[in-house]
Amino acid sequence: MTTRVLAIAGDDYRAHPLHSTGRIWTETNCYADVWLEVLHSLGLDPMVAGAFAVSADFEGDQWTFFKYPEADLRRAYGIDVHEMNPWRGVLQHVVEQLELGRLMTVEADSFYLPDTRGVSYQLEHVKSTIVPNEVDVNGRRLGYFHNAGYFELSGGDFDGVFRLGDHAEPGALPPYTEIIRLESMHRLPDDAALDVARTLLAEHVTRRPGANPVIRMANRMAPDVDWLRNQPPQMFHLWAFGTVRQCGACAELAGAFLIWFADHSSNPLAKEAAQHWMNLAEHAKSLQFSVARAARGRQIDLEPLTAQMAAEWDSAQDLTGKLVGS
């Protein structure tokens, strides 16, 4: 018996345009990406609640792991998200919530997620977030949202994701899970959606870091590069994901939101701000390549590029603040 909320076939799935191959950063992080696709598949516009990207910061050793805030999802779409207690085992909870017409976020091991083939699937154990949508317990099949799309798995991968059979871990801590309640979900008319987006933007503008986070990331970069030179290659990828990739992907998401805002409000200032966010995203990609070369021992002056990124951040934030009178 198959239990599902949305009738989706993995082979026919069409991802949201923000996950197209023409993007600067085709993926952001597992949580933001999976929500982009879940909202898209529910017939909702992910950009209505996209303002959170303007308030990301540098946390001292990494860029903010940016994600849709629960309060913003509730305000923009009527979706209620909160942590749940998987006291019976994750599979039982997933099935029951699907039967109730709800979804869940589930912390899963990418070792068992075929969509990560060539990266972590059957190669290494990496924590990620999926949203199960369709489950066939007897057939051991799962349809799930992950990263930039919708996928299907079965057999041993099913057992691995849910820690069943040979993959059972009796002493392991349960994974982090959330309930996604859809009972009050709504799609706002365009004018109302723009009002909500403007309100959320104003709130996130007040949460922006007081000092330029790109400068703080750049100051941390010199000792990090020295350290990376003595680390295995995989450590660079972990470092890059937590720093320049999150910085760049978040900037691109902020730019995408402001392009949407400009299109819906006919405000040219929003499009100007968006261009600075997109420039920051482009420069972050260049910086990632430069640091990769520096980590391999080449002498590369990163200061001109990080200074340009910092200037783009200042310009982007100045114009974004003017949109809401801040």
Results as ranks from 00 to 15, higher is better:
125 H>D: 04
132 P>I: 10
133 N>I: 06
55 S>T: 12
222 A>E: 11
16 H>A: 09
35 W>A: 06
79 I>A: 08
317 Q>Y: 02
70 E>D: 13
298 R>T: 09
253 L>F: 15
276 H>G: 06
51 A>P: 01
125 H>C: 07
208 R>S: 13
310 A>D: 05
48 V>A: 01
259 I>K: 06
250 C>K: 04
145 F>K: 10
214 V>D: 03
76 A>C: 08
15 A>V: 05
108 A>E: 11
181 R>S: 11
47 M>V: 00
101 G>T: 07
324 V>Y: 05
71 A>S: 14
324 V>G: 12
86 P>I: 12
270 A>Y: 03
192 A>C: 05
238 L>K: 07
307 A>V: 08
28 T>Y: 09
93 H>F: 06
290 S>C: 09
99 E>W: 00
22 G>A: 04
144 Y>P: 10
90 V>D: 11
91 L>Y: 04
181 R>Q: 08
279 N>P: 00
180 I>L: 15
160 G>Y: 09
88 R>L: 14
229 R>I: 05
300 I>C: 06
40 H>C: 03
99 E>P: 00
56 A>M: 05
194 L>N: 06
158 F>N: 07
237 H>W: 09
177 T>W: 00
299 Q>M: 11
26 T>Q: 15
242 G>Y: 02
240 A>Q: 14
74 R>K: 13
301 D>F: 01
242 G>W: 04
148 A>H: 11
5 V>R: 13
191 D>N: 07
68 Y>L: 05
93 H>G: 04
20 S>A: 15
160 G>T: 13
308 Q>I: 07
212 N>H: 10
2 T>G: 00
32 A>Q: 09
253 L>N: 10
169 E>A: 15
213 P>E: 10
92 Q>P: 00
216 R>I: 02
236 F>N: 07
123 L>S: 09
267 N>D: 15
22 G>S: 07
84 M>Q: 10
232 P>G: 11
215 I>L: 13
151 F>M: 06
173 L>T: 10
48 V>M: 03
190 D>W: 00
137 V>I: 12
309 M>K: 02
252 E>N: 04
119 V>K: 08
238 L>D: 10
280 L>D: 02
100 L>V: 01
286 S>V: 14
128 S>A: 13
322 K>H: 12
154 S>Q: 14
224 D>I: 03
307 A>D: 13
127 K>Y: 01
82 H>L: 09
242 G>D: 13
43 G>P: 01
12 D>Y: 08
219 N>L: 15
89 G>S: 09
109 D>V: 03
189 P>F: 00
31 Y>N: 04
124 E>C: 11
280 L>T: 11
250 C>L: 08
210 G>Q: 13
285 K>D: 13
282 E>D: 11
47 M>H: 14
238 L>W: 04
11 D>A: 15
87 W>T: 12
75 R>P: 00
39 L>N: 06
52 F>Q: 03
22 G>M: 03
45 D>W: 02
127 K>R: 11
255 G>L: 01
169 E>I: 03
63 W>T: 10
85 N>C: 02
245 R>Y: 01
316 A>V: 05
209 P>R: 07
78 G>C: 04
177 T>P: 02
96 E>M: 08
215 I>G: 06
293 R>D: 14
117 R>F: 13
307 A>C: 04
94 V>H: 05
29 N>W: 06
136 D>Q: 08
10 G>Y: 03
36 L>D: 03
270 A>S: 14
4 R>P: 00
153 L>H: 01
184 S>R: 15
145 F>N: 07
